[in-house]
């Protein structure tokens, strides 16, 4: 953790040496993530409901999913660059330092510009809270930070799984985009929009449904299309812990594999 913090701090200073680039890239991040919202806005310019959900509700899904991805990306998104370090051999430099490799990889090229996505999606979330007509009982209030943290952990776990995968196939880094950014696009929309088998897949196989769908459906007082028992609405932290556990095991196995094959 200590190692992570000061390496991240170094990278922040490093990127801030090019102030103009930093500002531009942060803005670009903000706009890039905002494009997804433009899609939703244009859709709602043509319709009042999508899959039975109103704009405020979709914005709520968009915001919760986006903030979770933004936080996970900020914290451990750098790990997806491990493939490059494996290819050019510079992972070895990290392995001879007295700081856990994971901390170094996660803080590698720590990019503060990722605050762009966080800012944009955070604003969308705040706006949706204004728009929503929700009876804010205590369980619903608690569910909000509850789901943001769990969602962050689930996306973080997926980032780490993707990084571990790169030890095995360094060129196939793009696969994880399907799960991180793809998962983000998916969970911006209500589950009712998607085919039931797809929803089953992202509930039981790649548990993206627990990033925000399950808890958000409780907040929005909507039925869940799979009809899962009520505790599923609150199960996100358990799922997040499981994803992170699997990711940790995969990461350890990947590093161990690298150290025995040196590939």
């Amino acid at each position: 953790m200590r190692g992570y913090l000061f390496i991240a701090a170094m990278w922040m200073r490093s990127t801030l040496t090019y102030r103009t680039s930093f500002v531009l890239l942060t803005l670009a991040q903000l706009v890039t993530s905002g494009l997804d919202f433009v899609v939703i806005a244009v859709m709602f310019a043509h319709t009042d409901t999508l899959g039975g959900f109103e704009l405020g509700e979709v914005a709520f899904l968009y915001g919760t999913s986006g903030v979770a991805l933004g936080l996970a990306d900020l914290l451990v998104g750098s790990a997806q660059q491990v493939g490059r370090r494996i290819r050019d051999g510079s992972l070895d430099v990290l392995l001879v330092r007295p700081v856990p490799v994971f901390a170094q990889v996660a803080a590698d090229r720590f990019a503060l510009r990722r605050l762009g996505r966080l800012t944009q999606t955070g604003a969308a979330l705040a706006w949706s809270l204004v728009l929503l007509d929700v009876d804010w009982t205590w369980d619903r209030v608690l569910l909000l930070p509850w789901m943001l943290l769990s969602g962050t952990a689930i996306f973080a776990g997926i980032y780490v799984l993707g990084a571990a995968f790169q030890f095995w196939a360094a060129d196939a880094a793009e696969v994880q985009n399907a799960f991180t950014h793809g998962g983000n696009t998916l969970t911006q929309f209500p589950p009712h929009v998607f085919a039931r088998d797809l929803v089953r897949g992202v509930t039981f196989v790649v548990p993206l449904a627990f990033v925000n769908w399950m808890p958000a459906l409780h907040v929005l007082d909507r039925p869940d299309p799979l009809g899962l028992p009520a505790f599923a609405d609150f199960a996100s932290p358990v799922v997040a812990a499981a994803v992170c556990g699997v990711a940790a095991l995969a990461w350890r196995a990947a590093v161990r594999g690298y150290r025995s094959t040196g590939s």
Binding site: M10, S14, T15, T17, V93
Partner: peptide
């Protein structure tokens, strides 16, 4: 051939 130093700092 691989530096441990920070490129931009």
């Amino acid at each position: 051939q691989r530096t441990t130093l920070w490129w931009d700092l």
